[in-house]
């Protein structure tokens, strides 16, 4: 088991520094906005001026997690599906429209996918292992697999999370190239995990490519940990078309997070608070935001 010791989420819902986000959540509406904390409380002005929303989210959530555990991270593992999209588009515009010999470098240096994790290392003055995974809807699951390996290898406190941002251009593309029909959103959730016991633990994570039968994959995954689908109290899914037993609570997390490819980190925050506030035992996250690529995360309460 890999226990969750701190969580920090900045999303379109009121999730930042809220003990139980469940009571704050309501279905996301079209044109909702990111609910941002006062970033200046966390990030010095000299650094803040260059940071796009996805970078502000990542760095602030990381600082918040660090403040909560009061210890340094021994590894940092971040997932992002589309990276720093705003700076990427900004730089595309800069060089495509420039007629000058000199072009502004700021959006270029902030555009690489690992700027989120890199800014966290800079902001926390952290010299540890620092990784960035980008695998479409499974980006957060990849970061989590890495974080779990870090703990297996003896790292004590590991920061793991994901963040993605929407842009007007992405909204333009959505009807054609994004299969799920939920309002696009910007968000990020970060977690401090370790071997030290706490209320909620992650049992296992699995990624499946070319999934032909998601129900069967779920069954196999649960069986490995001596569970059956009916034993699971809540399944958080991404508008998934799967048959599940009636005993199991079935929640579509995209209704609350809005749509960003790495939103399964939001689902993990959701599941964590659900188990604690409802005194339940187990939760499964089923992420098939991209068709036939499935991420499964199984978590369990240590108390219920």
């Amino acid at each position: 088991m890999y226990y969750i010791h701190a969580i920090s989420s900045i999303t379109h819902q009121n999730t930042f520094r809220i003990d139980n986000i469940i009571k704050e959540l309501s279905p996301i509406k079209e044109n909702s906005n990111l609910i941002s904390p006062d970033y200046k409380e966390f990030i010095p002005g000299a650094a803040l001026r260059r940071l796009s929303p996805v970078l502000r989210i990542g760095l602030t959530a990381a600082i918040d997690c660090k403040n909560k555990i009061g210890k340094k991270f021994d590894a940092i593992s971040v997932g992002t599906a589309l990276g720093c999209l705003r700076d990427t588009e900004k730089f595309l515009k800069t060089f495509h429209t420039s007629t000058s010999d000199f072009i502004s470098p700021t959006s270029f240096i902030q555009s690489t996918h690992n700027t989120i994790a890199g800014q966290i290392s800079l902001g926390l003055k952290n010299h540890a292992y620092n990784m960035t995974h980008t695998q479409n809807n499974l980006s957060f699951e990849m970061a989590l697999i890495d974080a779990i390996m870090c703990i297996n290898e003896g790292k004590i406190n590991v920061l793991v999370g994901s963040a993605d941002e929407k842009t007007p251009f992405l909204e333009l593309l959505q009807p054609k190239i994004i299969s799920k029909k939920y309002p696009l959103s910007t968000g990020g959730s970060f977690f401090s995990i370790s071997k030290t016991k706490n209320k909620i633990g992650i049992i296992d994570v699995k990624t499946i490519f070319n999934s032909k039968n998601t129900e069967l994959e779920i069954k196999d995954f649960l069986k490995k940990h001596k569970y059956e689908t009916k034993d699971i109290d809540v399944i958080l899914h991404s508008d998934s078309n799967i048959e599940i037993p009636k005993s199991c609570h079935f929640i579509n997390f995209l209704k609350y997070s809005g749509l960003y490819y790495s939103a399964s980190s939001f689902a993990l925050h959701f599941a964590h608070d659900y188990l604690i506030s409802k005194n339940k035992n187990s939760a499964l996250i089923v992420n098939d935001i991209c068709i036939d690529k499935v991420g499964l995360i199984l978590i369990k309460s240590n108390e219920a």
């Binding site: 599906a81 589309l82 990276g83 690489t112 996918h113 690992n114 994790a117 620092n130 990784m131 960035t132 995974h133 980008t134 695998q135 479409n136 499974l138 980006s139 990849m142 990624t207 490519f209 070319n210």
Partner: peptide, 25 residues
Amino acid sequence: SSGISSEQIAFELGISDFINTISTA
């Protein structure tokens, strides 16, 4: 997306057990 390029490579090799992309410049 960077992830798609890896999926296309894996597909050509016939690999589907695990596919991941690292992007650290």
